[in-house]
Design a protein around this nucleic acid. Structure first.
Length: 883
DNA sequence: GGGTGTACATTTTTT
DNA sequence: ATGTACACCC
């Protein structure tokens, strides 16, 4: 139908054009010339190699055979990857189109393209196979769609579409969608697909665990529905090609001939499906059973392998033959990764893939990059000591060539609560700013996004520029998704999900009943809903009003589809949004954000200009996540630790190092030891983002889900080496309250005279010099604002009180009631039982921080207490005792 | 079909 | 505490 194939140069098309835009169709003039030059000048290494250290250079020059590059943080990973590609090209080992280079994110792919362009300018246009797993998957699937039961104009559904679809299926099965939530099932399917499992392959137990044992049927129905919709989800972008490769050896063989070199970025993040996909492509045709489930290795005729020059292959003369002395179809796969930075286990990544590499690819060369160009010796020392607490590593130790005795140690600070934490970080940043430190070179990396809020509040208050990275994405906004739904129906009339989304947006008087009717008709006739709507509009099965509405919708789409051929896509999009009444809908909306939404729609249309066709644009939006950010502004970056991977900053703040938050309680509860190790790797990633200054913070009180919790410092703090760490005792807070893992040097943080924090110490006097600190003033202010009573002149007493008056009984009793789960003797989980509270309304109670108060309401184990001094708070009953 | 009330969940995120 | 999603009622 659509003419999308223009922008996809498939190699086996007649007259396949190699490096198109370079104008070198046929003869690789530019590249070959370069290759010649390179070989003529063999004595002097090409200049792109000259800046590499010996390990990097080895990684670049070991082009043949399987290679694993273990690239620690800041060791020049991307540089190796891009130089390696440049090297392969410059030496004439392959054409750009014969290199498969996969990344996880579009950002990484883009960066790689840019950097290759700097090294080999003429090559990039011809690297059609550099991209994310998913974008390459789409490309493969568009080419062979019919083998997966799809048409090549299939839609790609995002998570939201998938959930809506599954909801329909669950309801169709007569299941309660409260008991069996679509979200849960969508996650299950995602998990199965990550493992490469289709409906028939999932374990019986999994199948039974959902929807009264109907999991397998539901999954099957889901896949059937996708086929009907001519759509696939993200998982299918990998799974369909895998199936096709397995079932059609001739097609796989084509790609075997095609891809001479395979490069994989962030290999530690690959999941099982991606692994299988890579194995299929990298496998030597003759290779026998290497992998369970991968047994059918034999395909392409073993003998024929040697460069059966397909169209567009470099003339043999110009190319150094692919290692004549080695067996044919050499596996030239190079995986780059860092097992210590594997932080995506929760979404299916298998660290094992990287740990197993040498077994998977016998004879592999393993190269370690440990020379770090980013961080100071203190930071590296801290990171190394921390990560050494993990088991099952391949083992690497980062080092730096340039230790500087003036480098600051890693700083650890304590704060009373998250507001004070934000306030103090804000002050530190302002101080840096006065010293001309660029804000762009400062980042705050949090474990969970709710932590960002206190920083945002504070930064707004003091007028500090900041940017949040990884927030709600542009294309996830309602108005964008609506607009996209219109476009999707035009591009793929079978996209019922999109149709349903907008059939009554703006309101056209089509209620649930009318839509159901369209749905049923579509099912009965096995046609898309759009078609069914057109039919219904001509029948008398509906009341006049909805009938007229449907007729108009159907006529509109018919007209738009005609325009698709003749009208530029941006213009078409404008027409659609105008004629559908969608623009007017927002113009008439009095909501405060309506103008913003209109702006977003304009921006959407503007961004379409960057794409050749409607379908190219739709694909971009389906696959690309990036929100455009304002790079010009000098601003502090605020993001989660996960989204910080791969970035670096001069100065990094890591707030929230408290048990339960970091490591996160849920990671511990659900992941046990390996969950803890992943959290530790996350900490490692955080530490290694910093070039020079690193500040870690923890607080003693955090409000989680609306109630106050006392917190204890993260065990990770205890895993930092003293030699590289400086505990900052500027003393604006009350630090830890004892650490269940034994004495911790952080127990005393924040106590000028020390010692109060030790259990049993009578440390009241310790606070005399502390209560007047800004943190306290602020804390007090908050309380005053909240309750405006009982908190004026007696604050001094209150401070003493709150500190440790009867702490032993209070704390001890509270803690003692919480049972913990342990792994190897380490406390890992402390789930609080939902036992009815032992307290009653009106009871006089004591809380270790807020002092005495009266219980005013009880909700399970959550108490609302009117504290004498601290005002009304909600706290867990395990944190108070009868007074 | 739209508006109001209640119930529930709330780590991390890419494609 | 706070937001969202759904159910129910007008």
């Amino acid at each position: 139908m659509s003419g999308f194939s223009d922008d996809m140069p498939f190699f086996d098309e007649p007259g396949a054009r190699p490096p198109a835009a370079s104008g070198s169709a046929g003869a690789p003039s530019g590249i070959a010339a370069r290759a010649m030059a390179a070989r003529q000048a063999q004595n002097a290494p090409p200049d792109y190699l000259s800046g590499l250290n010996p390990e990097q250079r080895q990684a670049v020059e070991t082009t043949e055979g399987p290679v694993l590059v273990l690239a620690g943080a800041g060791t020049g990973k991307t540089r190796v990857l891009t130089t390696r590609i440049a090297h392969i090209l410059a030496t004439g080992r392959a054409f750009p189109s014969q290199i498969l280079a996969v990344t996880f994110t579009n950002k990484a792919a883009r960066e790689m393209k840019q950097r290759i362009a700097m090294l080999v300018p003429e090559a990039v246009e011809g690297m059609p196979w550099l991209g994310t797993f998913h974008s390459i998957g789409v490309k493969l699937l568009r080419r062979h769609a019919e083998l997966a039961g799809l048409r090549s104009d299939f839609s790609i559904l995002d998570t939201d579409d998938v959930i809506r679809l599954i909801k329909q299926l669950i309801q169709a099965e007569g299941l309660d969608d409260k008991r069996w939530t679509p979200r849960t099932f969508a996650q299950m399917i995602d998990g199965w697909k990550n493992k490469g499992l289709g409906p028939e392959e999932i374990p019986e137990g999994d199948a039974r665990s959902f929807g009264n044992g109907r999991g397998r049927e539901l999954y099957r129905a889901y896949q059937a529905r996708l086929t009907t919709l001519n759509a696939c989800d993200f998982g299918d972008l990998l799974l369909h090609p895998i199936r096709i490769f397995r079932a059609h050896h001739d097609i796989l063989a084509e790609y075997h001939r095609r891809f001479r070199y395979i490069l994989v970025d962030e290999y530690q993040d690959t999941n099982t499906a991606q692994y299988m996909w890579l194995r299929l492509l990298a496998q030597r045709p003759r290779a026998s059973s290497i992998q369970p489930g991968e047994g059918r290795a034999r395909d392409g005729a073993p003998g024929d392998v040697s460069p059966a020059p397909a169209e567009g292959q470099p003339p043999q003369a110009a190319v150094r033959p692919v290692s004549e002395d080695k067996p044919t179809q050499q596996i030239n796969i190079c995986c780059v990764g860092d097992d210590d930075q594997s932080i995506y286990g929760w979404r299916g990544a298998e660290v094992d893939n990287i740990l197993r590499f040498e077994k998977d690819f016998p004879g592999a060369t393993v190269i370690r990059l440990e020379r770090n160009y980013r961080s100071t010796a203190h930071i590296l020392g801290a990171a190394a000591h921390l990560i050494a607490h993990n088991e099952g590593r391949l083992g690497k130790t980062l080092f730096t060539d340039q230790p500087d005795p003036d480098d600051p140690k890693v700083n650890v600070h304590a704060a009373w609560d998250s507001d004070e934490e934000a306030r103090a970080v804000g002050e530190e940043i302002e101080a840096l700013q006065r010293r001309k430190h660029a804000l762009n070179d400062i980042a705050i990396l949090v474990r969970a996004s709710f932590q960002m809020r206190s920083f945002e509040d504070r930064f707004i208050e003091i007028g500090l520029n900041y940017r949040v990275i990884g927030g709600p994405r542009f294309y996830e906004r309602q108005e964008i998704r609506d607009a996209m739904a219109y476009l999707r129906v035009v591009a793929n009339p079978g996209d019922d999900l999109a149709f349903e989304r907008i059939v009554n947006v703006p309101k056209r008087g089509l209620g649930e009943a009318a839509i159901r009717q369209v749905h049923d008709t579509a099912r009965a006739l096995s046609v898309p809903m759009l078609q069914a709507a057109a039919n219904l509009a001509e029948s008398d099965e509906l009341k006049p009003k909805p009938r007229a509405a449907l007729r108009e919708v159907a006529a509109n789409f018919a007209r738009w589809q005609d325009l698709l051929e003749t009208t530029p896509h941006t213009e078409l999009a404008e027409t659609i949004l105008e004629e559908s009444g969608y623009i007017d809908m927002w113009k008439n909306d009095r909501a405060a954000d309506a103008p913003t939404r209109l702006d977003n729609l304009k921006e959407l249309i503007r961004s379409m200009e960057d794409y050749e066709s409607l379908r190219a644009f739709l694909e971009h939006v389906a696959l690309v996540m990036d929100a455009d950010k304002n790079e010009d502004l000098d601003a502090v970056s605020l993001m989660t630790l996960h989204s910080a991977k791969g970035l670096e900053f001069e100065t990094v703040f890591l707030p929230g190092w408290e048990e339960g938050l970091f490591p996160h309680q849920r990671a511990l509860d659900e992941g046990g030891r390996s969950g803890l190790e992943e959290e530790r790797r996350l900490a490692y990633v955080g530490l290694t983002r910093a070039k020079k200054n690193l500040h870690i913070w923890f607080v003693s009180n955090r409000r989680i889900h609306g109630l106050w919790q006392s917190t204890i410092p993260s065990r990770f703090l205890d895993e930092l080496p003293e030699a590289h760490v400086e505990v900052n005792e500027s003393g604006s807070s009350f630090g830890g309250y004892g650490n269940p893992y034994g004495a911790s040097r952080f127990d005393n943080v924040g106590s000028p005279s020390g010692g109060y924090a030790k259990r049993g110490d009578q440390g009241n006097q310790a606070f005399s010099s502390t209560y007047a600190t800004p943190g306290w003033q602020r804390a007090r202010q908050n309380r005053t604002e909240a309750t405006s009573r009982n908190w004026g002149t007696r604050s001094g007493h209150a401070v003493e009180r709150i500190g440790y008056g009867e702490a032993d009984s209070g704390y001890g009793a509270g803690r003692g009631s919480v049972k913990g789960r342990t792994i190897d003797g380490e406390l890992v989980a402390k789930s609080v039982a939902d036992a009815p509270s032992a307290f009653r309304i009106g009871d006089r109670v004591f809380h270790m921080k807020f002092g005495n108060g009266n219980v005013s309401a009880i909700d399970g184990n959550k108490l609302t207490i009117d504290f004498d001094r601290a005002g009304q708070k909600k706290v867990l009953d395990s944190f108070v005792t009868a007074a």
